[in-house]
Design a binder for these strands. Sequence first.
RNA 1: GGAGAGAUGGGUGAGUGGCUGAAACUAACGGUUUGCUAAACCGUCGUACCUCACAAGGGUACCGGGGGUUCGAAUCCCCCUCUCUCCGCCA
Length: 424
Amino acid sequence: MLTIKFIDENKDYVIQRLAVKRFNAKEIIDVILGLDKQRRQIQNQNDNIQATLNAIAKEVGVLYKTGKVKEAEEAKVKTAQLKEESKQLVIDLEETELNLKNKLVQVPNVPHITVPDGKSAEDNVIVRSGGALPNLTSDAVPHWDLAKKYDIIDFELGNKLTGAGFPVYKGKGSKLQRALINFFLDEGEKAGYKEYMPPLMVNEESGYGTGQLPDKEDQMYHATLDNLYLIPTAEVPLTNIWRDAIVNSSEFPIKATAYTPCFRREAGSYGKDVRGLNRLHQFDKVEIVQIQHPSKSYETLEEMVNHVEGLVKKLELPYRIVRLCGGDMSFTSALTYDFEVYAAAQQRWLEVSSVSNFESFQANRLKLRYKDDGDKRTNLAHTLNGSALALPRIVAALLENNQTTNGINIPEVLIPYTKFNVID
RNA sequence: GGAGAGAUGGGUGAGUGGCUGAAACUAACGGUUUGCUAAACCGUCGUACCUCACAAGGGUACCGGGGGUUCGAAUCCCCCUCUCUCCGCCA
């Protein structure tokens, strides 16, 4: 959520930059600024009435104490009408605030100045790429066939236990998951991230805090009896740690990482996108989060991108980093880099990480503020997060790219974790 | 799940209808003094909104959340949430 102040002070810029996200902001911004003006007027009126009421109440107290009962009774009479007026104003105020908020949450984050114009994924800009594309033999097969051949991931068994999109990892497949998780967490720790193990279910407030609610409600599994949501990403519990917090800027950067399973309903997905590990309802991911001073958040974004790049490099996967264009960016992001790895048998680039700077968009909802030393004022912090990394598509690429006639080779860096060097 | 107790500012904790946005102590920060890993003393020390220059000043709201009684509520009443203790159940 953008702040009204920012919109007010940068109206033309906001309209112009939101056009890059294919969002026409002109009209809604006028409505927002109008509602805000109205809101201030109403509050001002009501404050004045309250002040009068408070004064009368004080007076009545004194009159009673000095035995002037008659005068006190007279003073009381005056309050009735003021209270009526105030009541109506409070109703108006609440309604106006609600309207205002409803409009405000419809406005996406303003894309950073470097975000390219564009409609869809076609218009994303490849920033850089690395790693060599493997030369597979002609009998190379996609990962879902390999999973079956070596009996390491069982999709049918998952169907039996739960349903589509809930695979069962077996034997070396299971150990590979564990290895990747530990590898990612260890790398995160080396880079200065503090490890957390958060709850996998969150309450409504947390859902609102990071923006999954209200609009992405149907993407989350909802335990209605207790009104809890299964997390779609560790970003939700991890970032909400700092909901309603005021930190001293000397604590920046705050760096947190967590491994969690992630649960996504993925309503509306179909076709080759959901084949095998490409898209699941439950998957494992290590997430990194940073909270940073606004003046340094873009340096931090670069640092996070470099961290993720280091991971795919160490896994020896062919990758490319793309800067998302306005049309392909998420609602909440100001700048996003996607990481894609090449799955050689499917001959597809698979998105494995998305690293974003949300600037103060998320912090505004979270009420995550900071204070500079010696300054009484609070400001909104900047939040950033990224996957480092999501497992399934990494596994898909590892299996497909490293297949040989003798089995699937494990990248060097993972062997200390898997304790085996080939899946056969 | 049953019974009871409780929820106050960074922490401890006072306050049961007006003089309380809230004592006291403590932590933190700034300063004075003395000087050796410190003490004493003084000062500052919640958030949001309105007015307004995001200054000073003024106003309003907030003592877990919501509603009510009253001229006036941290204080009384109702509902909810959470925490603690005991019992039950249990990895």
